[in-house]
Each structure stands twice: as structure tokens, then as C-alpha cells.
Computed example of a mutant assay.
Amino acid sequence: MRNIILLLVLVSNIVSAQTADALFADANNLYRQDKYEEALTIYKQIEDTKELSSELYYNIANCYYKLNKVAPSIYNYEMALSLDPLNEDAINNLTIAHKLTLDRIEPLPKTLFQKISNNFFEKLHYNTWAYISVTLSIIGSILFILFYLSYDSRKKRVYFTVSILSFLLLIASLMISYQQFNTYQNKKEAIIFAEEIEIKNAPTSSSDDIFILHEGTKVSVIDSVDDWKKIKLIDGKIGWMQSNNLKIINNF
């Protein structure tokens, strides 16, 4: 009975994947015909099936961009990059979409370590760093076994040196993987969807306005109270806004 259930689940997944592929092709054809709203409807159907991919969100974002909807286009480019940080098309189009936003916010200066982290470590998902760690552990183990079995002193030195280097790199990759995992778990970023929103100094409607943001701006969510979110900008500004005016970027 259990085997039958597993078989049914497997068949269902295969059929679902085939259906998603067919829908994806249909939506792409509509997009090429400049039928952006029709293509978007089909892309959203695929999203509902949970057959998610960076390419799906990239195409959804392109549709919104063509329809001059700034916030949804930026949000979906960010979703595409959440699934694949190395999606160059999404990176390039996101840069173009940002030019449509009204807010120009200068980031705070970064330390050398932050620059290295942004330009190298964060380019890869923590799962990728985990795979690198596993690969290095296998390589190091094989080289250590070869060192133990070899009778040639020159080869033994090479095997030992490279195996030690592999284990040192393994430790470094494990540390990076752990750090990246914690970053992904704790990071909450969102896109402003309100055309214009006044940011408050406290989570109440009667509190003072401290600055104004516009649709498409990316913020970090650092706290929440009831239906209010405490946000932080890349320039260090902090304030409160109602939750229904922004949309959280999911971490996968």
C-alpha cells in the first residue's frame, strides 16, 4: 500500500512538472507576441502549482516591467535572485527597473570584510557552500588515504600538503556556509508597494512622520508590532510603516 502511494505521488509530480512546462511555453509565446497581461496570468498559474524557479520569477518581473508596474517588477526580480543569486539577466534588469523608482538612497560605507562578503561569499547560496564543503571533505579524505598508502616520499609530501590544504578550506567553507545560513534565516527584506507612504517614528497612526518612501524601494524589516513593520534603509534610517504597504521577499 505504501509503495502504491509513493508511486501515485511520483506520477502526480511528473504530471505537474509536465503541465508547468507546457504552461511556461504557452506564456513565453504570449510574451513574445507582446500579450503581457495574458502571459502574466499563465505565469501566475505556474506559481500556484509551486513549480517555482528563478526563470519563472524573472519572466513575471519582465511582464510587470512591460506593464509599467514598478514595485511588482522589482519584487519579482528580487524573488528570481533569491532563488538564483547568479542570474545575470535578473541582475541587469533589476538595475534598469531601479531607475524607475523615485527614492535615491545612498548606502552607508562598507568595511573591507563586508565588501568581500557581498562580492564573493553572498554570491553563492548556503546550499552551494555546503556542497563545496562535502566535496572538499571527500578530496581531503582521498588524499590522506593516498598519503597513508603511498611508499614514495615525494608523493607522500604532496598528498599530505594538499590534503591539509583541503581540510583547511573545508573548515573555511563550513564557516561560510553556517554564516550564510544564519544570514538567510535572519534576513527579512521587502519591497514598498504603496505609491507613496509616510514613515512614522512609532507604530501608531498618530505618531510623527519622519520621511517618505515610494513604490519599488527595498527595505529591511527588523521588527513588527501588530500590523506595523519596523524598517531600515541602506543609509541607516529607521521607521515604522503598516504591513499592507510592503511585500516580503521570500528566502528559499
Rank of each mutant, 00 (worst) to 15 (best):
G236Q: 02
S54Y: 04
D34H: 03
F193T: 09
R32V: 05
F120Q: 11
Y131H: 14
Q33C: 11
L168Q: 09
S150Q: 12
S163W: 07
S243L: 14
D208Q: 08
Q33W: 04
K123R: 15
K69G: 00
K187A: 13
N59Q: 11
S12C: 10
I238K: 14
F24E: 00
S207N: 01
D209W: 07
S133P: 01
L112P: 07
W228V: 05
N250P: 12
T217V: 03
S166L: 05
L143F: 06
I91A: 01
Y184G: 07
L124I: 12
L52R: 15
W228A: 06
K188A: 13
K187L: 13
I74A: 00
V70R: 08
K187W: 13
F113Y: 13
S141W: 07
A172L: 12
R104H: 13
L56P: 04
E189K: 15
W228Q: 06
K123G: 03
T135L: 06
L174V: 15
D48P: 01
H98M: 05
N245P: 15
V9Q: 02
D223V: 10
K187S: 10
L56F: 04
I60Y: 03
S150A: 14
L136Q: 00
D48Y: 06
K218R: 15
D84P: 05
K232W: 07
Y75R: 11
L30F: 02
N186V: 02
R154A: 05
T128I: 06
E55S: 12
S12P: 01
L10Q: 09
Y31R: 15
M175W: 07
S220M: 09
V70P: 00
S205D: 11
E215W: 00
S177G: 11
G239D: 00
E106K: 12
L6P: 08
I4N: 01
L52C: 08
T217F: 05
F160I: 03
N13Y: 07
A17R: 06
Q33A: 12
A39N: 11
L165R: 14
V221Y: 09
L56Q: 01
S166E: 04
K188G: 09
S177H: 00
I212Q: 12
Y178A: 00
I105F: 07
K247A: 07
L30P: 01
N186Q: 13
A71T: 03
N62C: 04
Y36S: 13
N92T: 11
N87P: 09
K115R: 15
L124A: 12
I138T: 04
T128W: 07
T128G: 04
Y75V: 10
N59H: 11
F113R: 14
H125A: 05
P85V: 02
